[in-house]
């Protein structure tokens, strides 16, 4: 019995150490590879506690092996976009301006009920209130509401020319007004176009942008695709640009 207690304490300590080593990411929403490693770790941990005839190394070695591989693969994914999309997949747009992308829904094996349920969890009861909905790689749905559907904010009352934005293109073209102020119509948030030096080709048609537009932005910033860490664009060609930190990359 004493051996069983010692083995349990040892396994407990190793699992706590392993989860700590894997970081806080492991405790929140899980990516597919993280889910697999969590399931495997929980099973492996129980083996040597349940069966005293099996050596402790039979649990400890595979657990530590999985933890190490998980860390190395996630570090590799953070550096290489292709590896990240191979392991975790990409986020997919399932709704745009109230319209459901049924092909994508079928591809993701989401039913309309699943989608509506996810929307209701975000306090959206009308699909038409959705400006953009994405299924993230961990299976959660992120939703951006239409301006008319979300509670009024102070920012919404500012005319576009005073808003501090770079280049609002459709100034004044709005059918919604509040206390005499025209409100921006169906303003789409900035979406990722380049992430970690990789072009998100699926996003370009949604934003109504072409590859030429992106090349022009990169030229303006004197930067290549590979040197770009993040480029978020809106249909109005407003953008947020972040260059890769070369020192960190080399370090």
């Amino acid at each position: 019995m004493l051996i069983l207690i010692l083995r349990t304490v040892l396994i407990y300590c190793i699992i706590v150490f392993s989860m700590r080593l894997m970081g806080k990411k492991q405790l929140g929403e899980l990516q597919p590879s993280e889910l697999v490693s969590t399931i495997l770790i929980s099973n492996l941990a129980s083996i040597s506690i349940e069966s005293p005839e099996i050596p402790v190394a039979g649990s400890v070695v595979p657990v530590l092996m999985i933890v190490s591989l998980e860390i190395l693969i996630s570090a590799w994914s953070a550096r290489c976009k292709k590896v990240a999309s191979l392991i975790s997949g990409n986020s997919k747009i399932i709704m745009y301006r109230g319209k459901i992308d049924q092909d994508m829904l079928r591809q993701l094996r989401f039913s309309a009920d699943d989608l509506l349920e996810a929307l209701r969890e975000k306090n959206i009861f009308e699909p038409m209130d959705v400006e953009l909905a994405l299924v993230e790689t961990n299976g959660t749905i992120s939703v951006c509401k239409r301006p008319g559907a979300q509670p009024m904010r102070l920012d919404d009352l500012q005319p576009p020319e005073n808003s501090g934005c770079d280049t609002p293109s459709d100034n004044g073209k709005s059918d919604i007004s509040f206390k005499g102020q025209r409100l921006p119509q169906q303003r789409l948030p900035k979406l990722p176009v380049i992430v970690d030096g990789g072009l998100e080709a699926d996003t370009l048609p949604v934003l109504g942008l072409t590859r030429g537009d992106i090349d022009r932005i990169l030229e303006k910033e004197s930067c290549t695709l590979q040197q770009t860490l993040l480029l978020l664009c809106s249909p109005e060609k407003e953008y947020y640009f972040l260059r890769r930190d070369t020192e960190k990359k080399n370090g």
């Binding site: 080593l21 070695v61 933890v67 860390i71």
Partner: peptide, 13 residues
């Protein structure tokens, strides 16, 4: 640090 720790664990294993 975690990557280094992972390498160290792999070497130990």
């Amino acid at each position: 640090k975690r990557v280094r720790a992972a390498f160290a664990v792999l070497i130990l294993l």
